[in-house]
Simulated scan of single mutants.
Amino acid sequence: MNKRIKRILKITGITILSVILIFAGVFTGMFHREVRTLNSIEKLDEHPLYTMEYKGDYGMDEFLEVGACNDQELVKFVVDRLLKGLPLEINIPSLGCSTFLAKNEESDGYLFGRNFDLNASPGMFVRTQPEDGYASISMVNLGFIGYGEEKLPDNMKDALLTLAAPYAPLDGMNEKGLCVGVLLIDTEPTNQQTEKIDITTTTAIRMLLDQAATVEEAVELLKQYDMHSSANSCYHFQIADVSGNSVVVEYIDNEMKVVRPEESYQAATNFLLTPGDYDFGKGQDRYAILMDTLEEQNGIVNSEEAMDLLQAASQDPHRTDDGDISATQWSVVYDMETLSATICMGQDYENTYTYSVEEPEK
């Protein structure tokens, strides 16, 4: 090979390398927050359980200007705003769960317990810090955004869809100690139709975690929007704050109802709690376990007893009416004073993990 050809090849190689470096620099500049977010993913448990630090702006303020009245509209917003056109399908099946609020025996604070019951579900704790909102941690069932046994976010390529996770929380706690959990109700889907901005089940949770410091603020926020149930189902929310205030928010005939406890503690499962002929649904046995135990202990438990109570109300694998195998996928105790969450996956109550609202020091 003569010197002239070698020189041409060398120049060509340098040019190609320069183009690649420029492209990589442009990509990093455009998507550096997304890349940092994906690089933050850690796998804690083989059930599995992941954690992720969301580094960018997921556009909640922008979303609340337009809203979404169904999952398809939410998907369109997330695809356009966060996933840069990457296809996404949000699928929220029937889920049976339990929540409760109790005073923490170990401090002057309160504990918020949550069982999430469904078929096999990979989970992810997502920590967010919006510029104009409260920092929070929330649990996401990755199955809702396309993950499962055959696809998990174990590499950069397969992790891309986790960028949608801020819009799919099922329970969580923010830096003010506000906690929220959503539970299925076997009744007509909520579909409010007024002139208000529309929100869906999971976007309501995201909004509350980002913007509400107290139960009363949360209730007033929900009143400002038209609620539309995800997945053509109906849900209610238990919301609690650091003062020990707690409510269950339900929608009956598209009218918002607020159920306040008679005692210092409160629980919810999968039937309506609004007084009247509404107490149909499932989970009365789990509700009795929660309330009877809390009554016996005057609504006061320590963190270990709180997890024991979730274990007592957990569901072993069983076949649902749809033919699926359902069980408690995770049990989590939110400590509203320390702003931390202790979680066990797959009913493995001997092994727990603790995750904090505060970002760990690097």
Rank of each mutant, 00 (worst) to 15 (best):
P87E: 12
V126N: 00
V332F: 14
R33Y: 00
G244M: 06
N245C: 08
P360G: 12
Y287K: 11
N70L: 01
K3W: 12
I185V: 15
A204F: 11
S233W: 01
F237I: 06
Y251E: 14
V248T: 14
I325G: 03
Y134D: 09
A267R: 10
A268G: 08
Q72K: 00
T187Y: 08
V259E: 03
D61A: 02
T190C: 15
I137V: 14
E150G: 09
R114N: 07
P153V: 11
S246N: 01
L290R: 05
D348N: 15
Q192W: 01
T99I: 13
T28E: 10
R33V: 00
V19E: 00
D277T: 07
L209D: 15
I199F: 01
N2D: 15
D71M: 11
M336Y: 05
W330E: 14
T293K: 14
G123N: 06
C97W: 03
K103G: 13
K6I: 08
Y287D: 09
E175M: 02
I22V: 14
K43D: 03
N91L: 10
G143V: 08
T51I: 05
D210K: 01
V247L: 06
P166D: 06
G133H: 07
P317A: 00
Q129A: 09
F77V: 08
I343R: 11
L222K: 06
I16E: 03
N115V: 11
K223V: 08
M60Q: 06
V258N: 03
V78Q: 02
E263L: 02
M124G: 06
A135K: 07
G143Q: 05
L290Q: 08
E46G: 02
A165P: 06
T201A: 11
T15D: 04
D80S: 04
E89M: 13
S121P: 05
V180H: 07
V140S: 06
K84W: 15
A164C: 12
S356V: 06
F100Y: 09
T12E: 13
K196Q: 01
F280H: 03
Y334V: 11
G59W: 04
A212C: 15
V66W: 07
Q266A: 09
L160E: 01
P87Q: 07
K103Y: 12
N39S: 09
G56Q: 09
A168H: 02
S230F: 05
A231K: 00
R33G: 05
Q266I: 10
H228G: 07
E42I: 00
Q129M: 05
N174M: 11
A288N: 15
Q238Y: 01
N104K: 01
V333E: 07
